[in-house]
Amino acid sequence: MPKTPHRAAALGGTADDIEAAFYESLQRGDVEALMACWSDEDEVFCVHPGGPRLVGPVAIRAAFEQMFGNGAIHATPAHVRKVESLASAVHNVLERIEVLTPDGPRHAYVLATNVYHKTAEGWRMVAHHASPGTAREPEDASEVPQTLH
């Protein structure tokens, strides 16, 4: 697959900056901005809630183009947990998804893991894996006191 140099120059900064740009592009329904967050590597992958594993930028783009055909995705990240090193970062986020229904807006909550690598072009997403959603915000087990019996 040919590389697209214009994407490499589009973003800079940290893994946090790429994550912010990713969620902003979802909220705008902007596939070009969204794909600028991804690495050009053939082995990048994405799993949407209940969906198959999409491998490579072409498959990932096609899935987001189809999703954006129904409008932007109003996903807001919260409760981020991070594991970071010099060249990689793993962020586990709670995505609050707003869904418009005939009865008004409703919310769903999805746990997602975003993986970033520091490449020659800067930080880029290499994986996004989202769980099936729930209607209620899940508790953060790390903040709930644990009792052993």
Rank of each mutant, 00 (worst) to 15 (best):
A108T: 10
Q66W: 03
E19L: 12
L54V: 07
Q66F: 05
S142C: 02
P77R: 04
Q66R: 14
E19F: 00
T113Q: 12
T119S: 09
Q66L: 12
V115G: 09
R7K: 07
P132K: 04
S88T: 15
A127D: 11
L148T: 14
V93N: 02
V110L: 09
Q66A: 14
E41Y: 01
D140M: 12
A135H: 10
V47Q: 07
V144K: 14
Y116F: 15
N114P: 00
R124Y: 09
K118A: 09
T147P: 00
D17N: 07
G56K: 00
F45D: 05
Q146I: 13
E41W: 03
V83W: 07
V44G: 04
A59P: 10
L34T: 05
E121W: 08
A63M: 13
E137N: 02
G56W: 00
G50M: 10
L100I: 13
V47D: 03
I97D: 08
P57D: 08
G29C: 10
A9M: 02
H74G: 04
A59W: 05
A112P: 05
D30Q: 02
A75E: 12
M35A: 05
A87C: 07
A63I: 11
G51M: 08
R7E: 00
H48R: 07
T119G: 00
E143N: 07
H129D: 04
D140R: 14
N70G: 15
L26D: 06
D42M: 05
A141F: 13
R53V: 15
V126P: 06
E143D: 10
E65N: 09
E65H: 05
R28V: 00
L100Q: 14
F68C: 06
M35W: 02
V99W: 01
S142V: 09
G104K: 04
I97R: 11
T113R: 13
V99E: 08
Q146T: 12
K3H: 09
A130T: 06
S88F: 13
T134P: 04
E84M: 08
A112L: 09
V83L: 15
I73V: 15
P49N: 06
N92C: 11
S25I: 02
G56Q: 03
A63H: 06
K118T: 03
D16C: 00
Q146W: 10
S39N: 04
C37L: 02
R106L: 07
A15T: 03
R106D: 11
E24I: 01
V99S: 00
R61T: 11
N92V: 14
R96E: 15
E43S: 06
T101D: 06
L86D: 15
T134D: 05
V144I: 15
K82D: 11
D42L: 09
G51T: 08
T4N: 10
E98P: 00
R81P: 01
G29Q: 09
E19Q: 13
H91N: 12
A8D: 13
F64Y: 15
V126S: 10
A141S: 13
S25Y: 00
A87G: 09
V47M: 13
A120L: 11
M35F: 03
E143S: 14
P77W: 06
P52I: 08
